[in-house]
Design a protein around this nucleic acid. Structure first.
Lengths: 219, 219
DNA sequence: ACGCGAATAAAACAAATGTTTTATTCTGTC
DNA sequence: GACAGAATAAAACATTTGTTTTATTCGCGT
């Protein structure tokens, strides 16, 4: 995800901006710190990227472009729905948490998590371009698993449960880790086991929801 | 959660600070805006709360105190594990999302979500005081459902899946709602149905995990 | 070697912000 | 009614920040 230190000035700025925006957030990050970290001048930032927001948008696009090209979500379209669900969960977790991806809260993932929570204007095009297709892929998988058509209400709920499990794992370090101290998830093996767990848990949940479908829900 | 407009100055400041810290975050929020919204003077903030961070800590403690006293997590200790899981999920969702609680992303929930993502120093005592006990309650419920003892590894994973589903629902408005446009979750009835869904989904997941326990995991 | 534009560097600006200082008003007590 | 201390108000301060302006340097085609 990060390149070698020596590079052209805009590249160094982009890399430094990614780290510092990720650590401090858009507002709290300062042009001067970024320039210093990039060994560049404050004016060169405005020269290459217009203004602070332009730089931020470039950082965002850069991260999503890299993450989604490295870990695409549509693997094995002709496999069974179960297998495709595992592939979806796996690629999502790898994209968000692995070191070659966004590195969780220790890397670009932190900046992206913040955008999920409170989108800046720069995030709107990202949603349309990168995230919306993900939703369609997951919806297709779930509609097969649940045996219902694409606009069923419980489909969105199941999608929320699956995504919720995955993305909450990404939030793990800051708070959850203080509750259950354990080494950060980064080893490939850990990610595979985490993906398998979320997959099984979700299959179990989906199965029960499907079984309940005709029965009136409730305690 | 919010009191009537006329109150003592520290109360007005606390209320205004809650809203503005929630909207803008600690760093981006300004003392002057808070003072203006509270119809108070900037100096009175320092007079009553010391400094900006002291005010923030007071806001945080205030929210957690209110939220957890209004929606405690330990309901019906002699009920079945299934029923206790529903009670846990319900109280968590009501605390985070309901209008009488933290009101989701439209209210104090936003500030708290930010703390989950990136804890400030003021959040550390909150974790110990309010959040850690929650983890113990959920762990007890899950260990019964899974039939394993309290330090089993899959127990933490299941807890993560349950909490992940709940809290991800709280993040819904900003981004997810742009993908699946729908009125915000606030009606009591919606919350009950959401709780029931998460409950059923989780019971299904837990059941499958338990069934797999002796079988080697994997696809 | 020259010159032109891109790129980098340094300094200057104006606006905003947390905090402190100094005055003024309010409140209850003798 | 007067006074001490709490409470509120207004102004001043020192820093910081995004941006702009002005100089200087670098790359290179002729």
């Amino acid at each position: 995800m990060t390149e070698h230190p020596p590079a052209t000035t805009p590249e160094r700025i982009l890399a430094a901006a990614g780290e510092i925006f990720g650590q401090d957030g858009f507002k709290a990050a300062t042009i001067r710190r970024i320039a210093h970290a990039a060994k560049a001048n404050v004016a060169s930032i405005h020269y290459h990227f217009g203004d602070k927001e332009g730089l931020y948008a470039a950082v965002l696009e850069n991260f999503f472009q890299a993450g989604f090209s490295r870990f695409p979500a549509d693997a094995g379209l002709d496999a069974t729905p179960e297998e495709r669900l595992l592939a979806f969960v796996r690629s999502l977790l790898y994209r968000v948490l692995s070191r070659e991806g966004w590195g969780g809260m220790a890397g670009p993932g932190r900046l992206i998590a913040r955008e999920f929570l409170e989108p800046t204007p720069s995030f709107k095009p990202i949603i349309e371009k990168y995230i919306k297709p993900q939703k369609d892929i997951l919806t297709a998988i779930l509609s097969e698993l649940l045996g219902c058509d694409a606009q069923d209400e419980i489909l969105a709920s199941c999608a929320l449960s699956v995504i919720g499990q995955c993305l909450y794992s990404a939030l793990r370090p800051p708070v959850v880790q203080r509750l259950a101290p354990r080494q950060a998830v980064q080893a490939e093996d850990d990610l595979d086991r985490l993906a398998a767990f979320v997959w099984q848990f979700s299959l179990g949940g989906i199965g029960r929801i499907r079984a309940n479908r005709s029965i009136p829900a409730g305690g």
